Simulated scan of single mutants.
Amino acid sequence: MRTEKEVLSQFKEWAKRNELIRVAVLTSSRVRPDANIDFLSDYDIELYVSDLSKFKENDDWLETFGSIMVRWPFKPRSTGFKTGCWITRLVLFKDGVRIDFQITDQLEIESDAYDNGYEILIDKDGITKGLAEPTYSEYIINKPSKEEYEVLVNEFWWDAYYVPKYLWRDQLPFAKYMLDYTLRYSFLHKIIDWYIGMQNDWSVETGALGKKFKNYLDAETWAEWEETYVGADIEENWIAFFNITTFFRKMAKQIGKKLGYEYPDQVDKEVMKFCREIKETKKID
């Protein structure tokens, strides 16, 4: 696999020769002073070009950087990366190097556009001269408002009862979706974020999809978190469901107590009572 020096040197030589490329900015983990870089770390590069149509037509230009293993999206298109006109080309090359390109023909850059870190690879027109120094605070966990907290903890209990409903019916796909996607990613991850933020004076970030949770949770709490994961067995999913609700309750109550927000004890108790009744109800053949 090519080294970072080789990858960036190759890219800069190409960008210098290509008149369409006006600015290239390296972002994300490779420009953060606290990042742990390994051989799987991507190169996130934003290109500011004079003619976007050339990059919409085909991917021939990517062949400069090596043989392609796989790419996303399959054809060049906008993926909602930022407001305005951007197209996305995420590319994994056969030697294992991955470069994520975001490309635009907008040649004006807001001064705080790269508050989470950047390195200017190419700037042929001085467009980036006004960029502010990064504060690395873009993804810092913010303390929830009373309303944010109350909405999240109450809506968790609305969605929670779907898991017993579909486990009882032996409809595993729906139950797993509610358990492993809705409850986990829509609610529990946010609660864990708030818990970690609260424990660290609202000064840290946990990364996409909780990838840094293990860095901040103590061993006992992490072990409890692991117990919320399970495979396809119906009975094991019942156990995971009760584990995930217990974990959510524990963290949500601590956050509420610390911030002076009211936890919905009665809703919790009534929903859990109903969930246990569902589990104990025998099916009639």
Score class of each variant (00 low, 15 high):
Trp61Glu: 03
Asn36Thr: 11
Asp38Thr: 06
Asp51Phe: 00
Tyr48Ser: 11
Tyr48Val: 06
Tyr48Trp: 07
Asp60Ile: 01
Asn58Met: 01
Lys54Phe: 08
Trp61Tyr: 06
Phe55Cys: 04
Ile45Cys: 09
Ala35Ser: 15
Asn36Asp: 07
Asp38Arg: 09
Glu46Ser: 12
Asp42Lys: 12
Ser41Arg: 14
Asp60Gln: 03
Asp51Cys: 04
Glu57Phe: 00
Phe55His: 03
Phe39Asp: 11
Asp59Val: 02
Glu46Met: 13
Ser53Asp: 14
Ala35Asn: 08
Val49Met: 08
Leu52His: 05
Pro33Trp: 06
Asn58Glu: 13
Val49Gln: 08
Asp59Phe: 02
Lys54Pro: 00
Ile45Trp: 09
Glu57Ser: 02
Asp38Gln: 07
Leu52Asn: 07
Arg32Phe: 06
Ile45Gly: 11
Pro33Thr: 05
Ile37Phe: 15
Asn58Leu: 02
Leu52Arg: 04
Trp61Gln: 03
Ser50Tyr: 01
Lys54Val: 15
Ser50Arg: 08
Phe55Gly: 05
Ser50Ile: 00
Pro33Gln: 05
Tyr48Gly: 09
Lys54Gly: 05
Leu52Val: 05
Asp38Ser: 08
Ile37Cys: 12
Ser41Met: 06
Phe39Gln: 12
Lys56Cys: 07
Ile45Ser: 10
Asp51Arg: 05
Glu46Asp: 13
Asn36Ile: 13
Ser50Gly: 15
Asp42Pro: 13
Pro33Cys: 03
Lys56Asn: 12
Asp34Trp: 13
Phe39Ser: 14
Pro33Arg: 04
Phe39Pro: 03
Arg32Glu: 15
Ser53Lys: 03
Val49Cys: 12
Glu57Gly: 00
Ser41Phe: 07
